Amino acid sequence: MLDDRARMEAAKKEKVEQILAEFQLQEEDLKKVMRRMQKEMDRGLRLETHEEASVKMLPTYVRSTPEGSEVGDFLSLDLGGTNFRVMLVKVGEGEEGQWSVKTKHQMYSIPEDAMTGTAEMLFDYISECISDFLDKHQMKHKKLPLGFTFSFPVRHEDIDKGILLNWTKGFKASGAEGNNVVGLLRDAIKRRGDFEMDVVAMVNDTVATMISCYYEDHQCEVGMIVGTGCNACYMEEMQNVELVEGDEGRMCVNTEWGAFGDSGELDEFLLEYDRLVDESSANPGQQLYEKLIGGKYMGELVRLVLLRLVDENLLFHGEASEQLRTRGAFETRFVSQVESDTGDRKQIYNILSTLGLRPSTTDCDIVRRACESVSTRAAHMCSAGLAGVINRMRESRSEDVMRITVGVDGSVYKLHPSFKERFHASVRRLTPSCEITFIESEEGSGRGAALVSAVACKKACMLGQ
């Protein structure tokens, strides 16, 4: 009897593995994704193909990295998701002549009506938060230079001027797309009239992360975010950046690689679950690469896999709870928690219980395998993109072996128990001629924006502006 049951459990697990095998990517698959990513990057950089390229390769006008001589107080704003952060950054000489960066910050959550109302409502709310922060720190009387981390696709015309191309991540505030974001912020500050600010720089969160990590390690020339969304930036040779005049030196390019796949480059790798996630998203047909990796989508992918296993009578005796059938019910943090389970399955059992399920031991094991399959594919897909960037940098610099540091931020990278190990191992397999160091950014977005502002202020002083 026991043997029969054991055989049935083994057969069930084997069927589960057959279904989950769809998520496995072979090294040849990853090399294919990497080569296609490089081709799209090239198209994004070139003037004649930029418009139709899915990977936009947006110039950021960040050319210099901090040298350690900029000092002063800077205000930093960070808008990239449902939370908005205001930070005071003091850049100065530390002990023994070292450079020191001290920060104080406060988080504000953005109400739904500000995210989806008008641009005026959104930026009025942001300036209200700045006003509140300055009151708390008794700094209303000071006109501070301000660095703005704005983590949406922007076409820069200068370091302090950028046109919002399109909202992502659930934002829909009308009247912002096609307009200068810094102008919208300046107008809102003017409307309030109770404080003055000098907006000197606007950067993407990947750029802010790279600059913040450069402060720790001067070989950091790539910034990457794996959180709600997924994106990367890197220092490109100016001669390859056709959208900006000049051939000397390097400029940081914001790849906006989340949109890779929007022209069909990933079609052969998309599964039924991916198509369902895409169809029910706020932007169907867009940001397809990001939807395979980002935390906004990972939990939902797992939920759809679990429903398939229920329908195949391989999980929960073929019956799903009402909660499990509800879109968004299986949160991405559950994926991390399930994979963090120590082996007694308590954590998995508790999560499934909150979803109205009474799982068996085998159910718990199957749910864990589903989570591992989805998150491992995410790590491997992400590795193909980064390997594409790094191999490109090595080739354009004609280096036999390139040493490089990548600064990384984002909740999936930082909080998932195995993502970074799987990701690092896969990147290294795909970049055999590179020695890569990964560092995690601390308060990256805010500190990085302030350091970019410090560079901009120093330049302005040198130019006598």
Rank of each mutant, 00 (worst) to 15 (best):
K190Y: 14
V408T: 11
Q24D: 13
S445D: 00
D4Q: 08
K169L: 01
I404D: 00
Q26W: 14
E27A: 07
Y234C: 08
A425Q: 10
L306Y: 07
T209L: 06
G328S: 14
C129A: 10
D400N: 13
R368G: 08
C434A: 09
I159V: 02
R377T: 00
G343Y: 07
F260T: 01
L165G: 01
D262E: 08
R35G: 08
S353K: 13
E443Q: 15
G44W: 09
D198V: 08
D4A: 04
M107A: 08
E52D: 10
G183R: 05
V226E: 02
L25T: 09
F133I: 01
A460R: 15
S100C: 07
R36S: 10
E339P: 05
L304R: 13
S131F: 06
H137G: 12
F438W: 07
M402R: 11
C434P: 08
E120N: 00
R368K: 09
M57Y: 01
I163T: 02
L386R: 07
F152L: 01
E22V: 13
Q347I: 14
E339C: 05
C457T: 10
M115H: 05
Q465I: 10
T431N: 07
V338H: 05
L309G: 05
R397M: 08
V374W: 03
H317I: 09
G223W: 05
A114F: 11
R394L: 08
V71E: 15
E93G: 11
Y349M: 10
L270E: 15
Y125W: 01
C129P: 01
V452L: 15
E443V: 07
K291P: 07
S151L: 04
L307D: 15
H156D: 01
A460D: 14
L386W: 12
M8G: 08
K296I: 09
W167K: 02
C434N: 14
D3P: 10
G44C: 10
D78E: 02
Y61Q: 00
R191Y: 00
N313R: 12
R397T: 05
V374G: 03
E120L: 06
M210D: 00
G193D: 00
D344F: 06
Q106Y: 08
K136Y: 02
D247K: 14
D42R: 12
T168L: 01
V222W: 06
E395W: 13
T168M: 01
C434F: 07
T206V: 00
E52C: 09
A450H: 01
L47G: 10
T431Q: 12
G147N: 00
M57S: 06
A387D: 01
E52M: 15
S426A: 10
E96S: 12
A119S: 06
D124E: 04
K414A: 12
Q286E: 04
H380D: 12
G92E: 09
E421H: 12
E272V: 05
T431C: 08
W99C: 15
C230H: 00
F84K: 00
E17P: 14
T361H: 14
G264H: 00
C252R: 01
Q239P: 15
C233Q: 01
Y215E: 13
E67F: 15
G343D: 13
G448E: 04
G249N: 14
E67D: 07
L79W: 01
L355C: 07
S383Q: 06
L315Q: 06
T116N: 09
E14C: 11
T362E: 08
L184A: 06
R368E: 10
M298H: 13
A450E: 02
A201V: 09
E443Y: 13
A329D: 15
G356F: 07
N166A: 11
S433T: 11
H141R: 05
G464P: 12
S426E: 09
T82M: 03
R7K: 12
S64G: 15
N391S: 11
T361M: 11
V181T: 00
K39M: 12
R85K: 04
Y214A: 15
E95F: 11
E242L: 10
E372Y: 09
H156S: 03
L386T: 14
G448C: 08
R358I: 10
G170T: 02
V335H: 05
Q347C: 11
H156A: 03
M197F: 04
I126Y: 05
E339Y: 07
T228W: 06
Y349A: 09
